[in-house]
């Protein structure tokens, strides 16, 4: 909160897929050590926004600055040190089926050591570290020996979270962290996210359309609609934002400025 330069600054970000404009000039500042939650309907470009920041999708226009450096102008090799500072929890966990849980958790640590971005680590050390990380997300270290397919959805999310925080990243992204979970497990995951972000002092961006989750995770909330960030505010004002689009969305009203095409 004391930083004056945003950890992440996005200006005029645009992305279209053929004739479909998904991002149409997104502006966003996320200060260091804070959590920003992006809300918005399905297909409004929330995931595309995250993937642009991660470099998985190349934007058509605009800038994405991390610590003042525009990462959109960097080559893939120049981006690597920035990517090593980012952890990501994917919507469905995205755990590697062919590896055990502990290998999933420490995959990034071993890969960073191989690539010369991180300290050397043996497989025995990695396995021990995986146990500690699993404990941090409330799991028994013995789970490390299992395969991801043997875990429930909630457990897979926790393993995904352990993998995301393994390298103690400065920036954490969460893509729909509570989707597909029951409300109690959703609250558990949100609690773990908040704990991890605070413990690491990371800057976080989460995308969700779960309002309870947005209020639990976010220091700031913004709504993406028609390719733009149309509102930003505190989570406490989420249900009384004064913006008719946001209010319709957060209250789940059928009537309002948002027109839902039920045929698509």
């Amino acid at each position: 909160m004391t930083d004056t330069i945003p950890k992440i600054r996005i200006r005029g970000l645009k992305k279209a897929f053929g004739p479909k404009v998904v991002l149409d000039g997104v502006d966003l500042d996320v200060m260091g050590g804070t959590s920003f939650v992006v809300i918005g309907g399905s297909g409004t470009g929330k995931s595309v926004l995250l993937r642009c920041i991660l470099g998985l999708i190349t934007p058509d226009a605009g800038s994405i600055e991390i610590d003042g450096v525009d990462v959109t102008t960097l080559s893939p090799r120049q981006r690597e040190p920035y990517m090593a500072r980012i952890g990501m929890l994917f919507q469905n966990g995205a755990l590697f089926d062919s590896l055990s849980v502990w290998e999933n958790v420490t995959f990034g640590l071993i890969a960073a050591a191989r690539a010369g971005h991180g300290p050397r680590i043996t497989r025995a050390q990695a396995r021990e570290r995986a146990g500690a990380l699993l404990e941090q997300v409330g799991m028994d270290p013995a789970v490390g020996a299992l395969s991801p397919s043997e875990l429930s959805g909630g457990m897979q999310k926790r393993v995904g979270l352990a993998r995301a925080i393994a390298a103690r990243p400065e920036i954490l992204f969460f893509d729909e962290p509570t989707t597909g979970l029951d409300p109690i497990m959703g609250a558990v995951i949100d609690g773990l996210i908040v704990d991890c972000v605070r413990r690491l002092g990371s800057t976080a961006i989460a995308i969700t359309h779960d309002m309870a989750s947005a209020q639990r995770i976010g220091d700031q909330v913004g709504m993406l609609y028609e390719g733009r960030m149309i509102w930003q505010g505190s989570p406490s004002t989420l249900f009384d934002s004064g913006n008719p689009v946001v209010d319709q969305f957060t209250h789940g009203r059928r009537e309002g400025p948002i027109k839902v095409d039920v045929r698509s």
Binding site: L54, G55, F96, D97, G108, A111, G118
Partner: peptide
């Protein structure tokens, strides 16, 4: 999972 690989160096 392929995107996850990219985020894990």
């Amino acid at each position: 999972q392929i995107d996850a690989l990219s985020t894990l160096s």
